[in-house]
Each structure stands twice: as structure tokens, then as C-alpha cells.
Write a protein that binds this DNA or RNA. Structure first.
Length: 387
DNA sequence: TCTGGGGTCCTAGGACCC
DNA sequence: TCTGGGGTCCTAGGACCC
């Protein structure tokens, strides 16, 4: 593949930073976003912000300001645990509508500069800068990587001007490396990595830094004595394939060498849409039956609403249960024709539930619709038989 | 006092059809 | 009566990501 210039843009402490625009008086203080399990302190609203110390519930941190991270708290950590580390950090409930509004704003700002964007969730995107760089360096004696940096600076400025928020950008020959590079100089940094930088800049990193190597794979690599990306790159690929399977093992080896051919894709159809909820307290399948039934039906109604609003119907209905011991089970049921109707979804999910042995308290209940199509889409409607 | 909610992709076995 | 290989769909679970 010919030379590409791919950027990864990551908003800095996104949710927390949006909240700081709203409450500038909190700037400089440790703040975490999370929870939304109504606690006593919610009642004492107004100008007084609750601290982590007063939290009770099962929420986790979605974002922490850099001041809060200094205490060792981080995304995904239980709020109760975080309270031990940073009892005086302020706790703000998440306001996803507001974050989505800012998400659209920053993406539109980027699009005005560089339209080839891939959405990677609410606070990050990939941008293919190849055409822009080529256009501006064609026939000139300019270093294209210097141009790529200029464009990144420009994007960063546009994002800040339109949203008041800062972001970090990595620019490299592919998505894999850019994702790593955007973290190098956070917050508000820009990092350029050429192919030749892989050995010096990427190989010293922990394998866990590779997007796609999670806690499980990391632990197994550790036991093999593979700690850094460089270790991984020097491992016999046949060993990796033996340990992790043909596809994952081979991918790991390629990733360690900084090789990644994936394109920046501007649009992809959703595969499934779901709703789930974790209860305030674990519910007993018999003693709390009425309450469970109510929540179950409610999830189906909300899910049907999501499908209708987004214009999708689906024929595979899925049920998800998580028990008090955190064991999670799923059951699927495929119906004859795609639906976006709450009662149909409820019935199919109810059929799934009948196949689950209910001998423990339940912590989470979820409903999912997959095998999506757009209703009215001619390709999804069965053509009548000719004979 | 552990561990949210919304997703994607992969694997693997069995059914079923050709 | 026995045997085979390929393709697709369905289901369950798990790893991983934001």
C-alpha cells in the first residue's frame, strides 16, 4: 500500500472537560464523572457539589480530570474504590445529551478541515489526511510529514475555537500507530510517527498499549515473558499462532511491527441495538418477580423506541442476564420477520428467559435486537415465490 | 464496598441443505 | 446403506473497546 497519513484525534478528558465549561469554578480541582445512582447528596443540589467520599452505589468512573487522575483513579474504576483514593474529588453525574452535542460540534469542526473521518465513539475519530497532504505537497519540495503536522495543528485549533475543548492528535502511516501516538503527549499534544520510528518509540511500550490487546491477552503474554511491543515483535509468529489462534496470533505479530492496512471508513451500518440496566440491588427471580417483569417490559419499550427512532428492525432478539456472582449469560431467539415492536420484542425475549435457570439473584438485565434491516428496505423483504 | 452501558468481532458446534 | 465436503444460519460465550 502506498504512503498514507492517518490521524487519530482523542478529546482530552472529554466528559469532565465539558462539565468544566459549565462549571468553570471547578477548574483545577479533582473531578470525576460517573454514577447517576441517585444518592442522598443529589438532593443537596444547588451550588454544593458532592464529593466522592459521600457516594454509595455501584457506579463506575466514566472520566476523571487530570487532577483526579493524579490520585490514581481512572475510567472504569468503581466509585466506591475511587472514593478511598480521592475522597475529596468532586463527583458529577453524566449528562450524555450534552456530551453528544459537543461530540457533534467537534466532529463538524474537524470535517470542515478534513472530511475523511471515521467515528470511533463519542470522543475520538480517525482522519485520513492522505489526500490533503498530497494535494498540498504535489510537485513541491515539501516534507509531507511537516505538512501533516500543520494540518493537525489546524484541526486542533479549529476544535478548540468551536468547542473550547482540547484534544490530542497522533499522525502516522496507519490507524494502529496513530491510536498509540495520540496518547504520547496528552493533553493537547501532537505526535508524528514515521514508519522508521516504530522501533524507537513503540517497541519500548507495554504490549497492553496496543489497541486490541486487553487484560486477558496481556496476562497470557506476560506468562510467556513477553512484556513490551518489542518483545512481541521478536517472538516467533508460529508460537503466537499456537498460543492465540491463527487469526489473533498473526494479527498480534503484525501489530507489533506497526503494520496495519485497515482503511478509514466514513460509515458503517449498526449490527445490533440494545438496552441494559444494572439494578440498585440484586433482585430475586421469585421474590422480586413483579419488579423484574416491570423493568423487563420497560427495557423492551425503550429498545423499540430506539429502533423506531433510528429506523431499524431486527429479527434476532437477545436476552442478557448477569447474576450476583457476576456470571453473565445470553440467550438468542430469531423470529421469522424483522420487528421494531415492543410487544414482539418482549415476547421473543420472554421466550429466551424461559431457557435460563433462575437460581440466583440477578444484577443486570438486558435486551438486544440484532440482524438489523431497515423496514421497507426491499432487499430485506422476502420476494414472493414465482411458482 | 469491586466491576456501567453501548457496541463489535471472533470462535465453535450443530442444524440443514446441496 | 454408508459416506464426504462446503456453505450458511443459528446460538452461546468471551475478549475487547469507548
Amino acid at each position: 500500500m502506498s504512503q498514507r497519513f492517518i490521524a487519530h484525534l482523542d478529546m482530552d478528558a472529554f466528559y469532565a472537560s465539558v462539565e468544566l465549561l459549565r462549571y468553570p469554578e471547578l477548574r483545577g480541582r479533582p473531578v470525576v464523572i460517573g454514577g447517576r445512582r441517585r444518592s442522598v447528596q443529589d438532593a443537596a443540589a444547588g451550588t454544593v457539589f458532592p464529593t466522592l467520599r459521600d457516594y454509595t452505589g455501584r457506579g463506575v468512573i466514566t472520566t476523571a480530570t487530570y487532577e483526579a487522575r493524579a490520585f490514581g483513579v481512572n475510567s472504569g474504576m468503581g466509585l466506591m474504590k475511587a472514593a478511598k483514593l480521592a475522597p475529596d474529588a468532586l463527583l458529577l453525574p453524566a449528562d450524555f445529551d450534552e456530551y453528544r452535542r459537543y461530540s457533534r460540534m467537534f466532529k463538524d469542526a474537524v470535517r470542515a478541515v478534513a472530511p475523511h473521518i471515521e467515528d470511533r465513539g463519542i470522543d475520538e475519530i480517525y482522519i485520513d489526511l492522505t489526500n490533503l497532504v498530497m494535494l498540498e505537497t504535489a510537485g513541491k519540495a515539501l516534507d509531507p510529514w511537516v505538512r501533516a503536522r500543520d494540518i493537525a495543528v489546524n484541526i486542533q485549533q479549529m476544535v478548540h475555537e468551536t468547542t473550547g475543548l482540547s484534544c490530542s492528535i497522533g499522525v502516522t502511516p496507519n490507524k494502529l500507530l496513530s491510536k498509540i501516538a495520540s496518547e504520547f503527549d496528552k493533553p493537547a499534544g501532537i505526535t508524528i510517527l514515521r514508519d522508521s520510528d516504530t522501533v524507537t518509540r513503540v517497541w519500548p511500550l507495554a504490549v497492553r498499549k496496543i489497541n486490541g490487546i486487553g487484560p486477558k491477552a496481556n496476562a497470557r503474554l506476560e506468562t510467556l515473558g513477553i512484556h513490551t511491543v518489542g518483545d512481541l515483535a521478536k517472538t516467533d509468529p508460529s508460537l503466537l499462532i499456537e498460543q492465540f489462534g491463527k487469526s489473533y496470533g498473526a494479527w498480534m505479530y503484525e501489530a507489533a511491527h506497526g503494520r496495519d492496512e485497515r482503511a478509514v471508513t466514513t460509515y458503517s451500518e449498526p449490527k445490533s441495538i440494545s438496552r441494559e440496566t444494572t439494578f440498585e440491588n440484586d433482585l430475586h427471580p421469585v421474590a422480586d418477580r413483579d419488579q423484574l417483569t416491570q423493568i423487563f417490559t420497560d427495557l423492551c419499550i425503550k429498545l423499540a423506541g430506539d429502533l423506531q427512532r433510528k429506523g431499524y428492525a431486527g429479527k434476532t432478539i437477545g436476552l442478557k442476564l448477569r447474576f450476583d456472582n457476576f456470571k453473565t449469560i445470553t440467550r438468542d431467539h430469531t423470529i421469522d420477520a424483522p420487528t421494531q415492536d415492543a410487544a414482539m420484542i418482549r415476547r421473543a425475549a420472554g421466550a429466551c428467559l424461559k431457557r435460563v435457570p433462575l437460581d440466583r439473584r440477578i444484577r443486570l438485565l438486558g435486551v438486544r435486537v440484532g440482524s438489523l434491516s431497515r423496514p421497507g428496505d426491499i432487499s430485506t423483504v422476502r420476494a414472493p415465490a414465482l411458482f
